[in-house]
Design a protein around this nucleic acid. Structure first.
Lengths: 137, 137
DNA sequence: CTAAGTGCAAAATGTTTGCATACTT
DNA sequence: AAGTATGCAAACATTTTGCACTTAG
């Protein structure tokens, strides 16, 4: 986990710029690669993966694992936003495969309950609720 | 998702037997393959994957995604799990891998909230909370 | 100059698939 | 006989890695 950046590079800069400009929680590494490829590949694929991983370590970007086989999703949250931004939770429909992301006060409360009563610190970025969505019910 | 079994095969039978005998929540498809390979390969890899997937659909086996890159874990829960025992929820520690089973009133309430406010019917048998356990905190 | 970062192509990983064969009913 | 399931090996998709090269400090 020794991933503190030492040098400031062009690649890192434009990657961050891009993420900041498209703060979707559902950007995959592949999406990023594709985007930059279409722009004349100013960043290579390995660098994208490596920088993304680093940004996750730094807490500037969140990584969500929706399901084991699909690619991981990344969400830009920014430097300062650690406490300001609401956590994004995920529900995945087992019927149609749709991914729902939601912000939920009750869930945040439950998380606290889980920690206080069950001594388990849940990680919302890794936890996905499986079930059946509205449309499929 | 048409995966209801039609024929009863030898392979399916011994796979189920094996899972039932080792009800660990940390068995991966690879583990199963390895095991059967060491037994003279009475089941091929594709069959293992295909049957496992089917068992998950049938609710006889649970599948956990620990993190996008590591292999999925399977847990035998058996036929009866669907037909209402007490609802059991799972928390999985990302540090030590421990699986915690818990019964929780708040969580059941939250489930109702999820259904009523967010129109999502969560399936507790398939949902695992990932985070960090007491010991590892 | 040195350490850190990059890019390529190749490897690793875990899982799925096409197709001919074999088994269930 | 007809419909399923199997096994192999090859295909896949995503991510990681080895190594020579470039760049920031």
């Amino acid at each position: 986990m020794n991933t503190r950046p030492k040098y400031k590079t062009k690649q890192k800069e434009i990657l961050l710029e891009f993420l900041e400009a498209s703060p979707s929680p559902h950007i995959t590494a592949g999406d990023v690669c594709e985007y930059f490829k279409s722009k004349g590949s100013p960043i290579g694929q390995s660098t994208i993966y490596r920088q993304l991983e680093r940004l996750v370590d730094e807490g500037i970007v969140n990584k969500y694992t929706i399901d084991g086989n699909s690619p991981a999703c990344f969400e830009y949250v920014g430097e300062g936003a650690h406490h300001e931004k609401e956590t994004c939770y995920h529900c995945k429909c087992e019927k149609c495969g749709k991914l729902i992301h939601l912000h939920c006060e009750e869930l945040e409360e439950f998380q606290i309950h889980l920690l206080q009563e069950h001594h388990f610190k849940m990680d919302p970025a890794r936890t996905v609720f499986y079930g059946v969505c509205d449309d499929c019910l």
